[in-house]
Structure formats: structure tokens, C-alpha cells
């Protein structure tokens, strides 16, 4: 089981990073999503894997529980990463609509056009 999870994390990380290194906005967003999955599963797995041991207390018998802390952290991470994905999507959408260009890199011309400071 551990091998499956670890290899999945590795493959998702590799794919995410490869896509993040592309030069258009949409692949970068996809890459970030993949990397988010990888990181979330990674964090979750730091609590070690357990089967049929959810961290819901059982009043009637003494049963093992999995580590709840990484789960709580990952839960908020999932929601926050949604917010961040949404922001990035909106930024790239606005940039594309304003310039009809979805390259993420600044061209040399862009740096020249950057507003200067006042006298």
C-alpha cells in the first residue's frame, strides 16, 4: 500500500512540476492542481497509513485511531488551495482577456513598458 501511495505522490509531483514549467497559463494551473494533490497526499501520509481506523472516537470499545492532526491540516489545505486556484485562474483569465496572450513570462518589451517612478 505504501509503495502505491508513494509512487502516486512521486508521479503526481513530477507531472505537476513539468506542467508548472510550461509557458502558458493553463498548463501551469493544471500543474499546480496536480502538485496540490501530491502535496496534500504527502502531508496526509506523514501521519502514516491506517485502514479502518478513522479518528472518530468509539464510546463502546477500545479501537485504534489514525493520526488526526495531519488530516485536520490537510482539510484546511484543500479548501485554501481551492481559493488559491480560483485566484490564479482569475488572474490568468484577466491577463488573457486584457492582452489576448496567455504566456506567463514577461517579454523584454514588458519590462521597458513598466511604469517608472516620478521625478
Amino acid at each position: 500500500m505504501e509503495a502505491l501511495v508513494a509512487s502516486a505522490v512521486g508521479i503526481m509531483t513530477a507531472a505537476g512540476i513539468f506542467l508548472i514549467l510550461r509557458r502558458r497559463t493553463f498548463p501551469v494551473i493544471l500543474g499546480l492542481s496536480l502538485l496540490t494533490y501530491a502535496v496534500n497526499v504527502f502531508l496526509f501520509a506523514t501521519g502514516r497509513l491506517a485502514l479502518n481506523a478513522p479518528a472518530v472516537l468509539n464510546k463502546y470499545e477500545d479501537v485504534p485511531y489514525t493520526d488526526p492532526l495531519p488530516q485536520a491540516l490537510v482539510l484546511t489545505a484543500i479548501v485554501i488551495s481551492f481559493g488559491m486556484t480560483a485566484v490564479i485562474v482569475m488572474i490568468s483569465l484577466s491577463a488573457y482577456l486584457s492582452s489576448r496572450d496567455d504566456h506567463i513570462d514577461m517579454t523584454a518589451q514588458d519590462s521597458v513598458d513598466a511604469p517608472g517612478e516620478d521625478a
Binding site: 505504501e2 509503495a3 501511495v5 508513494a6 509512487s7 505522490v9 512521486g10 508521479i11 503526481m12 509531483t13 513530477a14 507531472a15 512540476i17 501530491a38 504527502f42 501520509a45 506523514t46
Partner: peptide, 9 residues
Amino acid sequence: GLGTGALIY
């Protein structure tokens, strides 16, 4: 990817 996977494994 290899590094991350190996680390978590």
C-alpha cells in the same frame, strides 16, 4: 518526483 516519492515512502 523520485525524491518526493522516495521521501514519503
